[in-house]
Simulated assay, not measured.
Amino acid sequence: MFEHKTFEHLMEKSLPEIPLHLDKRTSSIIYAAVAVNNMEMAEMYIWLDRILKLAFAQDSSGEWLDKRAREAGVERNPAVKAKRRASFNILVENGERFFVDDLFYRVIENGMVECEEEGTIGNQPPNDSELLPVSNIPKLETAILGEVVIPGEEEESDLSLIERFLIERRRKATSANKAHYKKWAEEVEGVGKAKVFPLWAGDGTVKVIIVNSEMKPASPELVQDVNDYIDPVPGMGEGQAPIGATLTVESAKNKEITIRAKVSLRGNTIEAVSAEVAEELKLMFKGLSFKDLPLSEKATVNVAAVSNILYANKWISDYSDVLINGLAANLELENVEIPYLLAVDLYE
């Protein structure tokens, strides 16, 4: 709105207002005085334009977006510490600390540890890594880090917060409708997305399928956390769900996918190119995981989309015979399935 209120524009408006008999050259005192004032005015208009944009969620960011979203009851999701399984040859007390890959993990219960640092970094050390105790623990001989149970997450991004804010405004979750069950499930720490299946086993029944924050199948513990939050005592209204509603929570399932194609290379090795293509496919699959679609529609792994990835790779000069799970056809995913890249088989 105020883009045209630049320093130059303000000077062009101000100088003609000064009587002609006065010196208005750039070296004059009058010019300098007017210029200082207009510089401040130009900066003020820049801030006015910014303030105007901050009033709208889609143009806002940071703490101002937080304030806008809070008006609709939407809070930015905080960073989350990763919780992982761990195995010890003895019973280890809660609070004991272990070290691996420049990270500290604290025992929160026997068989479970929590990273002391928030964010996805706690998900990174490989399974079966050796945990080194910070203090001496008598009779401890083995301490092994296991799989991720609750993935660590970074603080929610502006883009994600805006998306949730707009959903709240446009598709109101209320009175235990489908949107409400989805909202409840996604409020649980560690849940990435959820799908809701009403009346799946008769009147009063609701099924919720979830994935974790990495868009992977949820652990049994995460499934139980969602169940306990929404409907801890079936049908009794002890959680978020109303009386009479019986909830079933399940994890999504991996759909293993193998991509095969004949390629001509202009350099590099087939192994290295396959690895590059695999990374691009994983990004594409992540976008397809639990895509928000009506239950009557299904996410699809398209041959054309796979071909585009091959075409865009700088090492591939030509390709043909693109197959998805052995077929030259698109692969439809069931509503409970997540695309999981099992292998990339490129050959010359």
Rank of each mutant, 00 (worst) to 15 (best):
L65H: 03
A86P: 03
S28L: 05
S135I: 04
E71F: 05
M44H: 12
D66C: 01
I108Q: 13
N89Q: 06
L131N: 07
V100F: 05
A42Y: 07
M44N: 15
Y105F: 15
S135Y: 04
N38L: 01
N77D: 11
R106S: 08
I30A: 10
R70T: 01
K67D: 11
T26N: 13
A32V: 00
S60C: 02
F104A: 05
E117Y: 08
T26G: 13
E118S: 15
R85K: 14
L132I: 13
K67E: 11
L65F: 01
Q58N: 09
A42T: 09
G119C: 11
M41N: 12
P138K: 02
L103P: 03
M44F: 12
E93Y: 03
Y45I: 11
E117V: 13
L65Q: 02
S27N: 14
Q124N: 15
N89M: 06
T26S: 14
F56T: 00
F99L: 02
I137T: 01
I121M: 10
K139L: 08
A79H: 08
K53Y: 07
L48S: 09
L65E: 04
S28H: 04
E109H: 03
E63R: 00
I121S: 13
S28C: 03
P126N: 15
I121V: 15
P138S: 07
S129K: 14
N77C: 12
V134K: 07
Q124C: 10
G111S: 10
S87Y: 11
I46V: 10
P138I: 00
L91D: 13
D101K: 04
E114Q: 15
E130W: 11
A33I: 06
L65N: 03
E117K: 14
E71D: 07
E114P: 09
E116Q: 15
F104S: 07
M44Q: 12
